[in-house]
Design a protein around this nucleic acid. Structure first.
Length: 974
DNA sequence: ACGGCCACTTA
DNA sequence: GTAAGTGGCCGTC
């Protein structure tokens, strides 16, 4: 793999200075620079062709506007004259040129091209790529690697020198007198007059290199400046230490820019003649058109000049009026806003202030009803490189709802709403007829939008993108790549703020239009297709606009708060995987459930009659209030307790106690409750979830609502299908493989205890797992001095409860409750456990201290779990946080592991040539559907992916074990 | 029609 | 003792 990064901005200025004759096309637009740029780009790709040709490529530009360096040092690059007038209109054209060559063109507001190149170079190097940066900017020399994995390529023609000059460690040494890793220290001292980096006055490259070589690095030098013999030099260093530090910050390239496109997105594409020639012809570049026509064996006459570019609409010539007043307000606010912290943190805070100051204007939103308007909308997206999108549908179920409209927002404050499915009122029964007039045909709109939505170089930003992915997939659109503001927020702040409305209120101080205000509530609530298009447009466009704003506010925080890796490697790639799983669904056998419902109903009725008999009166068994009154008031049973609201407690544990004391009614109620629960929640409810279109049940996974990083499942919840009791398991037999298929269930064995052993570094536990022992029996034997052979089941049961207790942040109170023993005895157990497994107590104390100090704890993959009330004045609340902070890294790390497994599963199965569909996730278990007879090929791959999911990010010090079984239904596979 | 509470289900 | 979601009852709006 070989990544070629081109310093686009460098190329533009070189083209400008190297090509004195001013080229203009027929309408007077200066294009000489664009031409030079095209020639250089083309020549570079030709020169690089060969054995070592780049497999990935991008051109990186400086975006306009401030960067974090302006906040650190306002004079940075301040002496630069503004760009020459004739160059300005050529800037956007060079971006178009890059795209015309089918090369990703990347620029990001707030970052210099050098920072973006540094980020990609490091990403690629870490992924085992070779990297070439086409630039002669000395600021990039800090990136050069001694092993040659990152090199610069200087392509400026210089008389008497070869056309291509590689810059490796030796060349860097020649230039700076130090190895590449010391370049920033040298630059910090000698400064840079071109960029206005101050450095230490009077110190040049030679002296700087000598000092850094002698002292090792800048900080050491500054701390030992007193030792320098030359008095003048010593004084200069002491006086200007701060200036040197600031200079170092200025020249240090940021390697964690939150880039929108991953390395995959930079894969080289063949040149597309239908993109290239319309551009070249619009620019009136005859020579290069001819050369490329020959090379590509294409006929340029087959293509028309690009109308937009030829008409010069989007590239106003200098002097054209500039819009935007709110921007200057925002800029003033930004200047006044001094933010502490690192570069990325300052940048994030500055972006927040800037975005928050831009008011929402509903009048600026546009309704798209003509092909021309749609084209303009799409052109804007291509010019921008990213777009916020929101789809509007007739309902909340992504497997059922119909598309009503799509909204795109490319600029903050703007939004194009494209209605496609609004219906006239009273038209519910007319099927495909009755659309409101004036809407573009849905097929036409989707075909046009596919160009944007399926373009690898255009980032689609949404709020809860999984929903849009599923809807669009049903309409034949495979949207990628994506960013999701909900998931970014989740990576940063956990599930605290989810919905768009909450995020908007919290970050932008903006209250969004509620759907209820638009459509009413209750059974008379209108569906989206029944809304007036104008009303719908305001709502939809606001959502897209707000999503874009939130993206600008939240995305920079990822780098500033060190959760980029978590978001990029876990959250972002998981969303499409979940979309696939939800779309597949699982087959549920109606007949089995119907039979069970009948059985449960009969038996429950018998229990009910028995209960009325025993109580001596008729009452509602489903009412805990009535039951409590009968048991404790009417029958006068002693020892009843009250819940915190003052009602009689009648939970299963209470009733079990009463039954043991000889009250048969209590047992009857327990049995009745269990049966009615199974019937009401499962056998009666599940058939209503069978989708008439697919004949399967499609749950919805929430990726962003669990504190610890687990998924949750709803509508229906397929993560709490019964398994414990015999009756409960019958429900699982209704989850079946269809004709010709088999289900596979693969589950992690004791994943949380293994994770605990790793995190807390408990040697005894690790050894036990290494040897494949029964972990609860081993615990029991350690604690109670009982041999594993012939151990009574009750002893093992107690140890098992203790092991779970440890994971849950044990308390004597809780353990006593669980085991039905005295608090003092439970306390003694815990003390013994801490003695036998040294390290556990340390782990617990460490988490408690961490959460109090930082307000969060962390999983082994860097997921932060926030506890805002860790220092609460309420003691019971504080104890709660302590227990949760002990549990969260364990539960969360296990959750991260299975998330990683899920992300890798589909590509790995595909690579192994196995046809297996991942259907469900139940925290430590994955359910697959495979063609009958392929179980034995699928299972080893599934196990390998799950067992190795932590690597290479984390090398676990315990073995991970996965058990997998195949069968025709879930009960037997489990 | 909505929301709190209690009960039950899972890992 | 950790983390979730759903359904029925019942009071309030």
């Amino acid at each position: 793999m070989h990544l070629l990064l081109v310093d686009g901005s460098g190329y533009i200025f070189r083209a400008f200075h190297a090509l004195p004759p001013l080229n203009r096309k027929s309408d007077g637009l200066p294009v000489g620079c664009v031409q030079g740029f095209c020639n250089m780009l083309f020549k570079l790709t030709q020169d690089m062709d060969g054995d070592d040709a780049p497999t990935h490529m991008a051109v990186i530009f400086d975006a306009k506007g401030k960067t974090f360096r302006d906040d650190i040092y306002p004079q940075y690059k301040a002496q630069r004259p503004p760009a020459p007038e004739e160059l300005v209109p050529q800037f956007p054209l060079t971006r178009s040129a890059t795209r015309a060559f089918s090369i990703p063109s990347i620029e990001m507001e707030g970052w210099e091209a050098d920072d973006i190149m540094a980020t990609y170079a490091c990403m690629a190097r870490d992924a085992g790529f070779k990297v070439t940066i086409a630039s002669s900017d000395k600021d990039l020399m800090q990136l050069v690697e001694p092993d040659g994995s990152i090199r610069l390529l200087d392509t400026i023609p210089r008389p008497g020198q070869p056309p291509l000059r590689w810059i490796g460690p030796d060349e860097v040494f020649t230039k700076f007198g130090v190895t590449p890793d010391k370049v920033i220290d040298v630059q910090a001292l000698c400064g840079d007059s071109v960029d206005n980096v101050p450095g230490v006055p009077g110190i040049g490259v030679k002296t700087a290199a000598q000092l850094i070589t002698e002292y090792g690095d800048l900080e050491t030098l500054l701390s030992r400046a007193e030792e320098i013999k030359q008095p003048a030099r010593r004084q200069k260093l002491i006086d200007n230490a701060e200036l040197a530090r600031v200079s170092k910050q200025l020249v240090t390239l940021e390697q964690k820019v939150p880039v929108e496109i991953d390395l995959d997105g930079l894969t080289r594409q063949p040149i597309n003649p239908s993109a290239l020639f319309p551009f070249l012809k619009a620019m009136e570049f005859a020579t290069i058109t001819k050369r490329l026509a020959t090379l590509l064996e294409a006929n340029p006459d087959d293509f028309e000049p690009d109308a937009t570019l030829a008409a010069n609409k989007d590239n106003p010539v200098p002097g054209a009026p500039q819009k935007s007043t709110s921007l200057s307000v925002a800029k003033a606010k930004l200047a006044a806003n001094m933010v502490p912290g690192s570069g990325p943190a300052r940048h994030a805070a500055a972006e927040h202030a800037r975005i928050k100051a831009i008011p929402v204007n509903y009048e600026a939103y546009e309704i798209v009803t003509t092909p021309d308007a749609l084209e303009r909308c799409i052109d804007k997206v291509f010019a921008k490189g990213h777009v916020a999108i929101d789809t509007e549908t007739t309902g909340l179920d992504p497997q059922q709802a119909d598309l009503v409209g799509i909204c795109l927002s490319t600029e903050i404050g703007e939004g194009c709403y494209i209605p496609v499915g609004h219906r006239k009122s009273g038209d519910m029964f007319e099927g495909g007829e009755g659309l409101v007039e004036g809407q573009l045909p849905i097929g036409f709109v989707l075909e046009a939008l596919k160009r944007v939505l399926q373009d690898k170089s255009i980032l689609k930003i949404g709020q809860n993108v999984k929903y849009d992915l599923e809807v669009l997939t049903r309409y034949g659109v495979a949207m990628a790549p994506i960013d999701d503001t909900m998931l970014i927020s989740y990576a940063l702040d956990g599930p605290r703020y989810n919905g768009l409305d909450v995020l908007a209120e919290h970050w932008l101080d903006h209250k969004t239009i509620t759907y209820a205000a638009l459509a009413g509530t209750g059974k008379n609530q209108k569906t989206f297709d029944q809304l007036e298009i104008a009303e719908a447009a305001r709502y939809a466009a606001e959502d897209a606009d707000i999503t874009l704003r939130l993206w600008h506010v939240l995305k920079p925080r990822l780098a500033a708060e060190n959760v980029t890796a978590l978001y990029e490697t876990i959250e972002r790639p998981l969303a499409p995987v979940l979309a696939h799983m939800e779309a597949r669904g699982i087959t549920v056998d109606r007949q089995i459930l119907a039979r069970l419902s009948g059985d449960f109903a009969q038996r429950a009725a018998a229990f009910e009659a028995e209960a009325h008999e025993l109580a001596g009166q008729s009452f509602n068994l489903g009412s805990p209030k009535q039951l409590g009154e009968i048991l404790f008031d009417k029958m006068g049973i002693e020892g009843g307790t009250k819940t915190k609201t003052g009602a009689w407690a009648t939970g299963a544990d209470v009733l079990e106690g009463l039954a043991a004391k000889g009250h048969p009614l209590a047992r009857t109620i327990v049995d009745w409750r269990q049966l009615t629960k199974l019937k009401g929640t499962y056998t009666d409810a599940l058939p209503n979830y069978i989708n008439p279109r697919t004949g399967r049940v499609h749950t919805s996974y929430s990726q962003a609502s669990v504190l610890t990083g687990r998924l949750s499942s709803n509508d229906p919840n397929l993560q709490n299908i019964p398994v414990r009791t015999e009756d409960g398991r019958k429900i699982r037999t209704a989850f079946v493989a269809p004709e010709g298929k088999t289900l596979i269930s693969a589950d992690y064995s004791q994943i949380e205890l293994r994770v605990l052993a790793h995190i807390a570094d408990i040697q005894a536990l690790k050894d036990a797992f290494e040897e494949g022992l029964d972990i609860h029996a081993m615990t029991a034997s350690e604690m109670f001095n009982v041999p594993v052979e012939g151990m009574p089941s009750d002893v093992r049961r107690r140890a098992k409860a203790i092991n779970f207790g440890i994971i849950y942040g044990i308390s004597a109170f809780g353990l006593a409750n669980q085991l039905g023993i005295e608090r003092s005895v439970a306390g003694e157990y815990i003390r013994t456990y801490f003695e036998r497994f040294p390290g556990i107590k340390d782990y617990m104390d460490a988490q408690k201290a961490r959460v109090k100090a930082d307000g969060h704890v962390m999983t082994i993959f860097g997921r932060k779990i926030q506890f805002p009330n860790a220092n609460s004045g309420n003691p019971s609340e504080r104890s709660f946080v302590e227990r949760a902070s002990i549990n969260a890294p364990i539960q969360g790390s296990a959750a991260d592991i299975i998330r990683r497994a899920m992300i890798r599963m589909e590509p790995e199965l595909k690579k192994a040539g196995i046809e297996a569909d991942m259907l469900l996730q139940v925290h430590d278990e994955l359910i697959f559907e495979v063609p009958e007879g392929t179980e034995d090929q699928a299972i080893p791959v599934i196990k390998r992916v799950m067992e190795g999911a932590a690597e290479p990010a984390v090398r676990l010090t315990v073995p991970i074990q996965v058990d997998a079984h195949a069968a025709k239904n879930w009960d037997e596979a489990h």
